[in-house]
Design a protein around this nucleic acid. Structure first.
Lengths: 255, 255
DNA sequence: CAGTCTTGTGAACGGCGTTCACCGTAAACG
DNA sequence: CGTTTACGGTGAACGCCGTTCACAAGACTG
């Protein structure tokens, strides 16, 4: 915004490169299920730990940074899954992204916990700032908006919602691209948060292992949650095919 | 079971006492927001860290032990909250316990994360064993059973549920006292897991801070989740008074 | 009494986040 | 051009952590 073009000086480019290398090294560690530590990251880059403090204020900031980056690349996966379905079928696209989210969470437990189940440090500016611009939130809201544009399902009128909810929706702090939503349908944002809450509940419970292993493996609770939420998006009739779609994706992974 | 009476020898009593002191020291640390570490626990007890290894195999086992104990004492709180309402009003009792759970989670973030949002270590026997006998699960199932006994709301027929769900319900690994449920109503267990998943979603999201602070503070999403779940328990007509009950409890804390 | 088993200790190892003094070198400046 | 400055790195150190191990003192057992 402030800087239209970026006349990155040599130094700045170097610095940028190191930043991305830090993230890459961190993700490599997580991928190979090693512990994420400053020393380990430094070693992976052929540096020593104190050097990292030139780029990051402390350990927590590294975690936040990595979490944000994970969210970004994971979101690309979800988007790709959605793009396997045509724009004319927004319901299938939304379900595809959601299912991909669930599968990703299971194949990337560490990353999931880091990104979505990490108690956001009290007022840690860095994280808050990043969370506000979280990209997975944007994608999901977008996909849900498309479903709404297609089906025009009922959303609660703003006036019917509790005051604090109205405030939260009117000036959202969390990731949401509500600018496309017409004023009279801002209740859609509330529906979005409802859906995200439900989705988060199953997936987190599954990933944390606080659920019957057989239910986790089959994914039936996940399917059930989506199924119960679908009608509120005007998708009653689509439930069978959407369930089939989810089952297929789940089977693809386990088989 | 195997030992009817307990002729606890002096040594055994001493050992038992030390065990409870370990848990107490750990909880004290958590309460004062200190880090939970073997060394800290030992110091709190006037011991040295290695001594703890006489009681606990490793750090994770201490955590599991403490988590189980936290669940136990927290459950007592939830039960007490339920007991503020008469047995003739099982809906109010259930809602009271659930609301208390939510409030407790907020006032005991650390404990909540430790107990309910801790990735259960892969096949760590200790934890699995304890989880199976988790007491909060028992309480909630009981309270929900009472609602069912009162309202006789519809539950899915076992035959209508996916196979893996049937298995999971017939031989539950998770905490649930299903013995009181008549054979033809075992679907109630499924309804219970649905409810727990929804509840877990909001509360975890709130506690982790991955939600608009204003929604967290007002608790409106929590209320919304309960409200949307109530009809499936035959509580459509009770929603207004139950909402009032929740709002009162929430206000009592913040105000 | 002697012997064993239990429960504690202190020292040590390796690893962690973090700080600090220090040093080359690349950029910026006059 | 030379000089100065600031950046990005180092190694050593501090105080934590979980964990191991040899060892000692005490309590039970026969």
């Amino acid at each position: 915004m402030t800087q239209a073009e970026a006349p990155l000086s040599r130094r700045e480019r170097q610095r940028e490169a190191t930043f991305t290398e830090i993230v890459a090294a961190s993700r490599a560690l997580l991928a190979q299920d090693s512990e994420l530590s400053l020393r380990a990251v430094a070693q992976q880059m052929g540096m020593t730990a104190p050097a990292l403090y030139r780029y990051v204020a402390n350990y927590q900031e590294l975690v936040d940074l990595v979490a944000f980056e994970i969210d970004k690349t994971a979101t690309a996966l979800f988007a790709a899954a959605a793009d396997a379905y045509p724009a004319e079928d927004p319901a299938a696209r939304l379900v595809a992204a959601i299912t991909e989210f669930r599968m990703w969470a299971h194949t990337h437990r560490r990353e999931f916990v880091l990104t979505f189940a990490n108690p956001v440090a009290d007022s840690s500016c860095v994280r808050r700032e990043l969370i506000t611009s979280a990209t997975s939130g944007h994608l999901m809201t977008d996909l849900m908006f498309e479903v709404w544009a297609d089906r025009q399902f009922d959303v609660p009128a703003l006036a019917d919602l509790p005051e604090t909810v109205q405030e939260a929706i009117r000036t959202p702090l969390m990731p949401a691209k509500i600018d496309r939503i017409p004023e009279e349908s801002r209740g859609l944002a509330w529906a979005y948060i409802q859906g995200w809450t439900a989705l988060y509940g199953v997936v987190a419970l599954e990933v944390m292992g606080h659920m019957d292993p057989r239910l986790i493996e089959s994914g039936e609770m996940f399917i059930d949650v989506v199924t119960r939420f679908a009608p509120s998006m005007g998708l009653e009739g689509d439930v069978p095919r959407l369930v089939a779609q989810m089952r297929e994706r789940i089977r693809a992974q386990s088989g």
